[in-house]
Design a protein around this nucleic acid. Structure first.
Length: 289
DNA sequence: ACCCAGGCGGGCG
DNA sequence: CGCCCGCATGGG
């Protein structure tokens, strides 16, 4: 078990804010620890104030440290980000309320699958579906901790999902999304190279992601934000749309394009961070209809 | 019994 | 383009 000093980080907010780790990670009741499958092992991370401890069986220490820093966005300059997105009272309140919530960076495929499943769905159910898929189609692994052995399941590969029938994917609870994840898995197992999008610009990468079945404007932005760390991506769901219209357009309805333009101009390169804070603060204020 | 969930694809004017 | 509809499923 090694540890590092951290500041401006809140593991609980980060892990519980409907990012991929919310769906495939395991948290303790108080939310200050999380375990998740990574590179054929289980990584465990634990926060105590300004100390972040991490543990793995097989990852060498430098590699594990790099995994944790990258995964939890610990090298993002939050002071700078807050300065740039804290453009008004609403944003300042949001930053204050959820201080330390960071954008995570996750595996391209895992992020893609999670967010296809997220459409027209709720967090609890998404999590259940992902867990079922892992238990059914993930590789089994073993992890040793405090002299005890425990098993865990890795995240299923594109090949493993592509090999299933739509009806068996539906038995995992995926519902009408089953056909999307099968078709997308087939493409990713074949010629669609998710890794290649890493080096493309945000608009170019988004255009390609939109070719995947079940990936539309919102899901593509989520994948780019949390799977590729393209911090300019601004996912617009029903909540963000409504909150932005109410807060910045006097309640007048705006097209997706208008809101994307607004986000780019107002929040710029860190629009993705702004979106995360807008969503959670708007919801906590119950900014409904 | 209903209603909803961080949308998307397809069809229409 | 903008609008409308159907969609699997489980929890409030």
């Amino acid at each position: 078990m090694s540890s590092i000093r951290i500041e401006n980080f809140n593991l609980k907010y980060t892990v519980e804010s409907a990012q991929p780790l919310t769906f495939f990670g395991n948290t303790n009741p108080s939310g200050d620890a999380v375990s998740y499958p990574c590179e054929n092992d289980l990584v465990t991370v634990y926060q105590q104030k300004d100390r972040l401890s991490y543990f793995s069986n097989i990852l060498p220490n430098t590699k594990l440290k790099n995994e944790v820093v990258t995964r939890f966005g610990l090298s993002d300059n939050l002071n700078k980000i807050y300065e740039e997105i804290g453009t008004d009272k609403f944003m300042k309140e949001s930053i204050s309320r959820y201080s330390g919530m960071r954008i995570t960076q996750n595996d391209h495929w895992e992020t893609t699958l999670c967010f296809i499943l997220s459409q027209f769905n709720n967090v609890k159910r998404i999590r259940g579906i992902v867990k079922n898929l892992m238990n059914m189609y993930g590789e089994i692994g073993f992890h040793f901790r405090d002299g005890r052995e425990m098993s865990f399941r890795s995240f299923p590969t594109p090949e493993a999902i592509a090999a299933q029938s739509v009806s068996s994917l539906m038995q995992c609870g995926a519902g009408f999304r089953a056909k999307y994840i099968k078709a997308t898995a087939e493409m990713c197992a074949d010629s669609f190279d998710l890794k290649r999008l890493r080096d493309k610009s945000y608009p170019d990468a988004k255009e390609e992601l939109l070719e995947l079945p079940g990936v539309g404007d919102k899901v593509a932005d989520c994948i780019l934000l949390m799977g590729y760390k393209k911090l300019g991506a601004f996912p617009i769901d029903t909540w963000v749309k409504r909150i932005v219209e109410r807060t910045y357009f006097k309640g007048r309805k705006q097209s997706l394009r208008k809101i994307h333009n607004f986000a780019e101009e107002r929040f710029g390169r860190y629009a993705g961070y702004a979106q995360q804070y807008i969503f959670w603060h708007g919801r906590s204020l119950k900014m409904i209809a």
